[in-house]
């Protein structure tokens, strides 16, 4: 058993993930989610904003983390649109604007076609410089983002009227996969703007580090796909009520079943490995 071919483990993991995905696809069922305080805080912070407020949303991830973070982005955007808030989208990662465009196409252009680009939402694209960008937008937003993604000067965009620095936004959301991300937003933006509310959606790997800033500098946090599923359930309950939710708005919850069986398999493998380890140890102790 100790010489177990690792391909059996790979096969078991593949089945543990694939079968729940198939089960999801056939039945359409998901597990119920009860929100933890950090996820509930994200929902409450957005609910508390008056209609028409502008929200800075930073897409700080790329396709590698899409599995965890894209459902968060979708839920955030849907919630903002439903509340008639106005997202100003930026990115600190080079591939962030493309992810943002995908979310805008999937949520705003499909389900909220009455919203006007430049007036109700805008994508200002990527700016290189990592925390340097954050440092500058703390005092001069337009220096780093002078035009939107299609080249229109921000001075001509109604959504940017009166915005001169990051602190002019009542709420900032970062959806981040690493550096630069949640930690840098806390250090360079939240800390120097005490009135600003910062929310972060982060990967599981990042969560333990970013959790240190909650609930002080970071008002709310979605940690990994579990946090995304909790927030998605809150948004669906608020918008859909008893109606059937469109599949694209259940992505996070549908990923909880593969996660459950993957985790259970992981625990089973650890228990099995330890059982074999102690059995071998006892055999060696008994042997003459």
């Amino acid at each position: 058993m100790s010489g177990l071919d690792r391909r059996w483990i790979y096969l078991a993991m593949m089945l543990a993930v694939a079968l729940p995905i198939l089960w999801n696809g056939v039945t359409g069922k998901t597990f119920p989610e009860s929100p933890t305080p950090p996820s509930q805080a994200c929902f409450d912070a957005i609910e508390a904003l008056p209609e028409g407020s502008r929200v800075l949303v930073s897409f700080d991830y790329d396709p590698a983390s899409e599995g965890e973070l894209a459902p968060m982005a979708t839920s955030f955007m849907r919630h903002l649109m439903h509340k008639r808030l106005k997202p100003v989208v930026i990115a600190l990662w080079p591939l962030g604007p493309t992810k943002a465009e995908e979310t805008i196409a999937s949520v705003i252009k499909t389900d909220f076609p009455d919203r006007v680009n430049g007036k109700d939402f805008v994508n200002l694209g990527f700016q290189t410089g990592n925390e340097g960008v954050l440092k500058v937008i703390g005092t001069d937003f337009r220096k780093q983002f002078p035009v939107d993604r299609s080249g229109t000067p921000v001075d001509r965009l109604p959504i940017m009227d009166g915005i001169t620095k990051a602190g002019d936004f009542p709420l900032v959301i970062t959806i981040s996969a690493g550096y630069p991300g949640g930690k840098e937003w806390v250090q360079y933006v939240s800390s120097s703007n005490p009135g600003l509310v910062l929310l972060a959606g982060v990967t599981g790997v990042q969560a333990s580090q970013v959790y240190s800033y909650y609930p002080g500098q970071l008002r709310g946090m979605l940690a990994a796909i579990k946090g995304a599923a909790e927030y998605e359930a809150l948004v669906s309950a608020a918008i859909d009520g008893d109606r059937v939710t469109a599949p694209k708005y259940t992505e996070a919850r549908r990923r909880m079943a593969p996660q459950l069986f993957g985790h259970v398999l992981l625990i089973a493998l650890i228990v099995l490995g330890n059982a074999m380890y102690f059995a071998q140890k006892r055999c060696k102790a008994v042997a003459p």
């Binding site: 177990l4 690792r6 483990i9 790979y10 078991a12 993991m13 593949m14 993930v17 993957g262 398999l265 992981l266 493998l269 650890i270 099995l272 490995g273 330890n274």
Partner: peptide, 12 residues
């Protein structure tokens, strides 16, 4: 996911 499962079985 596959590497983590294999490593957990062998090293944890």
């Amino acid at each position: 996911a596959f590497y983590v499962a294999s490593a957990a079985f062998r090293a944890f």
